[in-house]
Nucleic acid binder design. Structure first.
Length: 965
RNA sequence: GCCCGGGUGGUGGAAUGGUAGACACGAGGGACUUAAAAUCCCUUGGUCCGCAAGGGCCGUGCGGGUUCAAGUCCCGCCCCGGGCACCA
């Protein structure tokens, strides 16, 4: 009260708002207003939240639940950069918002702490991966804490913790002890399959049982034969049905990493991590039968609120195609092929087998043997990358055998060609050069006959792959349209027993064993080389100590180095699980993280249910997110989960890119030392190359980026920049947007931002940058805007000398309008995840309230609650200063009211032929007719009409008036 | 090649078919200051006419179309990003 000019107290002030402020207001004493001390406030509230357990979450069946989950991080040695928290900030806003709305919110965090980098580091330094993992996790935790997340850390999980991986191993055992029943379309205990074999045997590969399509054919056997099998044979047969199984299979072997990789871990023929070459190799291998779930994984996408692009990626990856299976007899054997175009059967002029095809050797005639064997050897030794690299080179060899066409009985030559993939379908194709470009090129290359299958095709030039054509090849399909011909061909195939309609998937079973140390041990032991599951009582099977984290001299995985790596004298499995094992079910453990008797109690699972909102990067589309769904469906089949999809809604946050500063650099050697001269970006000449400059020490001047001697000196402290000198007093640098990466010197550390501006500013700025889903560059300069906003917000509550000053006066209509417009916008934006527009609205509100000199509790209190999810520390502090003892997180969400937004007049844009020409304020009480009259009566409108009568006047109440002349 | 996204000022971006460019950065000008920082005020899509007040024209990747009205809807292209790809 001692300050006569405190904001909001003077009507004179309000009227003067638009005028320049008198100079004395800017005097140093009044400058004391600037006392928003983010450092002190944030440290204080982070301490309180921790001490008071503000965000500890109980299982409370009386309250509605909401489960917001982030994809947990792999704690790498590099720590977090500003891109990492983007999704966490978004999920934290939703979590906090939902708490205000009365939900019991589960918002946990943990670490995906098994993985390659810790092990690579261990190999180099001899440090145990558990130690580096622990250190890295602690560092992550400290960084995350500084951002002020409302995670319930009491529920933290780590996949490398034995108490956690005990249950990963337990789920593995359930997979091992299950088979997939295609009739019931679900997983069932393997014991039921055994009982069935004892009862009725097995018809081999039929519709009643499902085997993986990467395995060899299983011959039929009777119940009596089954009973007569020895233990070994029985177990070998059962392996072909288990959902976790050991088989001899083609795998992606990465020599550099010394391990096998799943398909999603290989990109363009090199490993996703590290970019090392990948070979195809045949070896015994643990796999998970995800293919059994292909159709359900595809169908399940329908009901999910996931990004369309991501669902499409999964659909592509699953790769369903519908067609027919056709058998071509060869002597007393046959070749089975899969085709999507059985309508082109009369155009088949040869058959091609993949080099890996099991029947190649059998069908090769004596005189062709040498040539075929040489070809097969050459083809299978080529790495995936080599194979993909020269797709254009055509190679193949004739086996010397002929197959019989099922309809015409004609002899069809059997070839081997590496354009046919061993891993897809049956590894054999019926070649129709007239209808398939790949077959066409092969035929052309080897001079094989090309038969036209469709009317209007010019097969001399290329194959005709149209699906809206008419069949013209001789036979009963002639004259039919393609779709009808497909149906008809399948009918005929089924009639003569030469084939049937079939669905094929591109999805492969997932290789599950890794020849590495730092992963979950697979709970299996071997008796007479037959794998047996470890009893549950033996779990967790803890990782043993080893002398080195390297393979043994004989090439066995690191676990083979462990002493006594046995169970009751029998050797234990030495491969470990892949990185994605723990992340396939971790969301369940958060529900009941300390449970020692189960992976989670049924009560906890029933209460928390599906994840309501899952946020993470789109790079997990075909890996994690597919396994995550697969395991959920499997546990559902066993009756352990009431739902069969893990996450209802999923959002992919975009990447925050870094801005690299490019300079032209010229290298020279002087006194045996290297020197680099930094040149302006337009420099040209010999020996000049581009180089990223360290971003931190670059200046912004007149919208351009510069480096001067001062910045260069600081940069020189970084070893990579030693020996750098500027060619002038300051050099302009060229900004380039790229992925944030240490090697590009464009990484921005959130700790630095927080130290300077505070966590609330960081949170607001990351949200303000643009739509969450979009990738966008980080520009530290822009952060000033959100920082200023928070200072202005703070100043609404404070008078001179930082004296807290909020009144209980009744707010004006204008103030209430600002408040309610903001509440409305923010309440509508949060569920849409449109946080950038929310922040913009808060800025508008503060600008308006500032101009109105509003410091009224009735306005500022609800506004503070609305801001709390975004900027929780400043909100807590102001809330406390407004006299509240409880955390603001307990305050109910303020509701907006329409009545405060309503006006009695509206300023209409008046347009002529769609072009806005003037504005006219009209009362909202007028109806369309009265409005038209009022508009036309306006002198300015009259003047523009120049006496003409308008053709038409369009009046849209509360929107626009358009006059057509 | 196929399938998804997406092209708006100097920059990040905003716009239920209804005033394009909210909000912010940057830039320019000004106030305060010995000065700087901080803060505050004004201007800021391009262009043309005008001393000014003001006004005209162009403008959301390109070309058409629907509509009183199109960044938004439809058709045809171009470019950028992502996914799949010798998948039969």
């Amino acid at each position: 009260m001692d300050a006569p000019f405190r904001p909001g107290a003077s009507t004179v002030f309000r009227q003067c708002a638009a005028l320049p402020r008198p100079g004395w207001l800017n005097s140093p004493t009044i400058q004391g207003i600037m006392a928003y001390d983010h450092k002190q406030i944030e440290a204080e509230w982070q301490r309180r939240w921790k001490e008071q357990g503000t965000f500890r979450t109980g299982n409370d069946p009386a309250r509605p639940k909401y489960y917001v989950l982030d994809m947990f991080p792999y704690p790498s040695g590099a720590g977090l950069h500003v891109g990492h928290p983007l999704g966490y900030i978004a999920s934290d806003i939703v979590a906090r918002y939902k708490r205000h709305c009365g939900f019991n919110v589960l918002h946990p965090m943990g670490y995906d702490s098994f993985g390659l980098p810790a092990e690579q580091y261990a190999i180099q330094t001899g440090q145990h991966p558990a130690k580096t993992t622990e250190e890295n996790a602690a560092r992550y935790r400290a960084q995350l804490d500084r951002i002020g997340f409302s995670f319930d850390w009491d529920r933290e999980v780590r996949t490398s913790d034995p108490a956690f991986y005990k249950w990963t191993q337990w789920i593995f055992l359930q997979l091992f002890n299950s088979w997939y029943d295609p009739r019931a379309d679900k997983a069932r205990p393997i014991a039921e399959l055994v009982a069935r074999f004892e009862r009725q045997g097995c018809q081999g590969q039929d519709a009643d049982v499902l085997t993986g399509d990467t395995e060899e054919f299983i011959g039929p056997f009777t119940a009596d034969e089954w009973k007569g099998f020895d233990e070994r044979t029985k177990q070998m047969v059962l392996q072909r049905f288990r959902l976790a199984y050991l088989s001899e299979a083609w795998v992606n072997w990465c020599p550099a990493l010394g391990t096998v990789l799943a398909n999603d871990e290989v990109k363009d023929g090199v490993s996703e991590r590290g970019g090392h070459p990948v070979e195809r190799k045949r070896m015994p291998q643990w796999s998970l039968r995800i293919t059994a779930y292909a159709q359900r994984l595809l169908d399940g996408l329908e009901g999910l609120d996931w990004p369309e692009a991501l669902k499409e990626t999964q659909r592509n990856w699953i790769g369903k195609s519908t067609g027919a299976s056709v058998r071509f007899p060869v002597g007393d054997d046959f070749i089975e092929v899969f085709t999507t175009r059985p309508d082109t059967l009369f155009g088949v002029s040869f058959i091609t087998l993949a080099p890996e095809h099991v029947l190649v050797a059998k069908f090769t005639t004596h005189d062709r043997r040498t040539e075929v064997e040489a070809y097969v050897k050459r083809a299978t030794n080529r790495s995936e990358r080599e194979r993909q690299a020269d797709v254009d080179r055509i190679s193949g060899v004739f086996t010397g055998s002929y197959a019989k066409h099922p309809f015409t009985g004609a002899d069809i030559p059997v070839w081997v060609g590496d354009y046919v993939l061993g891993g897809y379908g049956t590894g054999a194709v019926m070649a129709v050069p007239g209808g398939d470009q790949r077959d066409w090129r092969f035929a052309k290359h080897f001079g094989l006959p090309i038969i036209a299958v469709t009317e209007g095709a010019d097969v001399g030039k290329e194959a005709d792959e149209r699906k809206d054509a008419t069949i013209c090849s001789e036979g009963f399909l002639k004259g039919l349209q393609v779709p009808q011909a497909i149906t008809r061909a399948i009918e005929e195939l089924e009639k003569i027993g030469a084939g049937e309609g079939k669905v094929n998937f591109r999805l492969r079973d997932a290789t599950f064993g890794r020849q590495r140390y730092w992963g979950e041990p697979i709970p299996i032991y071997y008796k007479d080389d037959i794998p047996y599951p470890l009893p549950e009582s033996e779990l967790p099977l803890k990782l043993p100590e080893v002398d080195k984290f390297l393979p043994t001299e004989t090439g066995e995985p690191p676990l083979a180095r462990a002493k006594n790596w046995t169970y009751e004298g029998y050797p234990l499995e030495t491969t470990t699980m892949p990185g994605w094992a723990g992340s396939s079910w971790y969301f369940l453990r958060y529900m009941d993280p300390k449970n020692e008797g189960r992976f989670a109690s049924p009560e906890a699972i029933d209460y928390w249910g599906q994840v309501d909102l899952y946020i993470g990067g789109s790079e997990h589309s075909t890996g994690h997110l597919l396994y995550f769904r697969f395991w959920t469906k499997f546990l559902h089949d066993l009756g352990l989960l009431p739902f069969d999809e893990p996450a209802k809604k999923l959002v992919n946050q975009g990447m925050i890119q870094g801005i690299s500063m490019m300079a032209k650099v010229q290298a020279s050697t002087k006194d045996g030392e290297e020197h680099y001269l930094v040149l302006p970006p337009d420099s040209k000449g010999e020996g000049i190359f581009e180089r990223n400059y360290l971003v931190d020490h670059v200046l912004l001047r007149e919208g351009k980026h510069w480096i001067n001697e001062d910045g260069a000196a600081k940069t020189r402290e970084v070893p990579a920049f030693r020996g750098f000198h500027l060619s002038g007093p300051s050099i302009e640098l060229k900004p380039v947007v790229e992925k944030m990466s240490k090697s590009k010197y464009n990484v921005v550390n959130p700790d630095d931002i927080i130290a300077k501006y505070g966590a609330d500013t960081l949170r607001l700025y990351e949200m303000f940058l643009g739509p969450l889903e979009q990738s966008k560059p980080w520009d530290t300069h822009g952060i000033e805007g959100t920082f200023r906003f928070l200072k202005k917000f703070w100043n609404l509550f404070h008078g001179p000398e930082d004296a807290f000053n909020v009144t209980d006066e009744t707010p004006t209509k204008a103030e209430l309008k600002t408040l309610h417009a903001t509440l409305k916008k923010v309440t509508e934006d949060i569920p849409k995840m449109s946080f950038n527009t929310s922040v913009a609205q808060f800025m508008i509100a503060v600008n308006e309230l500032h101009a109105l000199r509003c410091n009224k509790r009735a306005v500022l209190e609800p506004l503070t609650i609305a801001l709390a999810p975004f900027a929780p520390h400043i909100a807590e502090e102001l809330w406390r200063r407004m006299g509240h003892a409880e955390s603001i997180s307990t305050a109910p969400w303020p509701q907006w009211e329409q009545r405060h937004l309503e006006e009695d007049s509206f300023t209409y844009p008046i347009s002529f032929n769609g072009k806005m020409r003037l504005q006219l304020e009209l009362p909202l009480t007028l109806d369309a007719k009265a409005m038209e009259a009022a508009v036309l009566a306006n002198p300015e409108v009259q003047q523009r009409l120049e006496g003409k009568t308008p053709k038409k006047v369009v009046v849209v109440p509360k929107r626009i008036v358009n006059i057509v002349v």
